[in-house]
Write a protein that binds this DNA or RNA. Structure first.
Lengths: 355, 355
DNA sequence: GTGAAAGCGCTAACAA
DNA sequence: TTGTTAGCGCTTTCAC
């Protein structure tokens, strides 16, 4: 009758005490084993590990956190643009956050509704924000966040503000490399389709293209540069313009895969074989790159790794701030890769019949 | 010396006790206000609410859960297919889960690695699983899950197993409606591109098409039905076959947007205007539908709402099981919508010159 | 190297 | 209608 009023346990999952009992040690020792603290004798550790395995024990994140573990609420702004990118980004965030007591709050926001969305997120007590493109370049958003002194990571931005954190690839170098690749294949006239004017990656990619054109002494003709906005439709128009040129390019490098896919569509509409008559390549390696046919040669941004890094950086920053510090704001550059698929080839011999 | 050793609080966020102190009530009363339990006098409630606002108090999810609140860990299997779908799906899951102490664990899995992935998820102590397509039709997956007695929701499946939960649209009816729409426009020969054979939605959509063809007495010709597999490339092939027919269709209804986009590409390659010379429509209303040009007339599946519903259903089921019960396994049907965009039109007059 | 005690913030059960 | 008590599962602090 001394039973204090039945336990309130609801889930019948094993607890740290169950493990301790089975291993014949105290809960504290189990805790030490779990957290990889040094001071546990090997024999003890082994017994504990056995018990953990036998019971299929998994620690309760909630209890852990409550007992002094830190926790993090990270907001992700989801704009309607770049849906392809977003999915991969989110998976990376979720994965990394789960490893570190992080919770990801996704806030959808319509164009123009960014400020309201952020307001909402901030009221929900998020500790920091992740900004996938194009938000990392949005002046009003950035200004607001800076004023509020919210920790922020900009992802895939060409040029992130100094006070923020960022994770990107070297857009300029990647575009340079792709352009050189095309040049090495034998293309002299390479068309380029730019991205949206308000994103800094756009400028970087264009600069990379220009560098390579200059370095390899390719045809440097401004009519070879067509303005796009990262949207498929803008790619359609840009490709038309480029292919209408009296001396049309033999290769077109679009600033993203959507516009490259559009270029392929236009080429086909004109009975041009890709890559036989026209080489087309993209940038990002989004789902679209392997959806269309031929599959696109492109620059791979490791989006989900970048997301993981971003979450990591952000948590570090938040932790530092909680501890009072935080002076450095790392801007990390991750590796990209040039992925060759079926959309590039050596140019067909030009009309003036060399051979 | 009676000071038990200073508080261990780490975050300086206000607690329920802070609110209670400020409002001059007990923590329990605050808890009642937060949880909208009836028995609190209005005056008291107001004071508490003021205190909450003043302190910007937000309850700690961890503490709440630990104290007996239920919690849920829901696993989502992420196959490489249908990335467009997945992003929207995930956002819905996350959103709904966040409202109900749910945590979403995403597990990526390669083709053929489903069983291992599930094993991993289950070891991570998930309480239930969400199965986006094509998993809801995968026999081995389903068998394993059933044997283990794991709560499961199949989403967007044509025909979910009785013992599981499901959220779908009425694929057959939707395809029927789209086909009738095409018939009403004046098309008599309507091509159809099927989906992957191993997904039950494929059969449903085809059946809907057939029903409408019969009901409207349209040309019922099996050469008008081309097999696809939901992939873009299969759509390319199917469209070629259909347009190579001596009496080619004036409209092609593809079982998803990817294949519809491929059909548009083939049409353009053959100098056919869409929708002038050929009407094309898709199914799903994925990101692709509004990416390509012309934008696709398609059937909208409200994926993110479906995800929300799925999470809800799953939590309800888990809760019931914890309470010992659970007899009924709801299969909910949500509304779809036929979205008209720019890819459909009245057929051009046929060669035999009617007028 | 290991254990005991206390407390993280909250709510269920009971008492007033 | 409101308050009191105890305990959720874990980790911290201190003692051995």
């Amino acid at each position: 009758m001394n039973e204090p009023r039945g336990s309130r346990r609801q889930r019948n999952a094993p607890t740290i005490s169950d493990v301790a009992a089975r291993a014949g040690v105290s809960p504290m020792t189990v805790s030490r084993v779990i957290n990889r603290e040094g001071s546990v004798r090997d024999a003890t550790r082994e017994r504990v590990e056995e018990a953990i395995a036998a019971l299929r024990y998994a620690p309760s994140a909630a209890a852990r956190m409550l007992a002094g573990g830190e926790d993090f609420r990270l907001g992700v702004l989801h704009t309607t643009t770049s849906l392809f990118y977003f999915s991969e980004f989110l998976v990376g965030c979720l994965d990394q956050a789960a490893r570190q007591n992080g919770q990801i709050i996704v806030e959808q926001c319509a164009e123009g509704g960014e400020v309201a969305a952020i307001e909402h997120l901030l009221n929900g007590r998020v500790d920091g924000l992740l900004l996938p493109p194009p938000l990392g370049d949005a002046e009003t958003v950035l200004a607001m966040l800076r004023e509020r002194d919210v920790p922020v990571v900009a992802v895939s931005t060409g040029r992130a503000p100094e006070w923020a954190l960022s994770v990107s690839i070297d857009d300029r170098k990647a575009a340079y490399e792709m352009t050189r690749h095309l040049g090495a294949l034998g293309h002299r006239r390479i068309g380029f389709v730019t991205g949206a004017a308000n994103q800094s990656a756009t400028g970087e990619r264009l600069a990379g293209y220009r560098d390579a054109v200059a370095d390899m002494a390719l045809d440097a003709d401004d009519t070879l540069i067509a303005a796009g906005d990262f949207g498929y439709r803008s790619g359609l128009d840009a490709a038309e313009r480029l292919l209408d040129l009296s001396d049309a390019p033999t290769a077109i490098f679009a600033s993203n895969d959507d516009m490259a896919a559009a270029t392929v569509a236009i080429a086909h509409r004109r009975d041009l074989d890709v890559p036989g008559d026209l080489t087309v390549c993209g940038f990002d390696d989004s789902a679209l790159a392997t959806t269309v046919w031929p599959e696109l040669t492109t620059i791979r941004q490791p989006v989900s790794d970048m997301a993981r890094t971003a979450v990591d950086l952000l948590m570090r920053e938040i932790r530092q701030r909680r501890a009072g510090g935080s002076e450095d704001h790392p801007h990390v550059l991750v590796e990209y890769a040039l992925i060759r698929r079926q959309s590039d080839a050596v140019p067909r011999r030009r009309p003036r019949a060399t051979g």
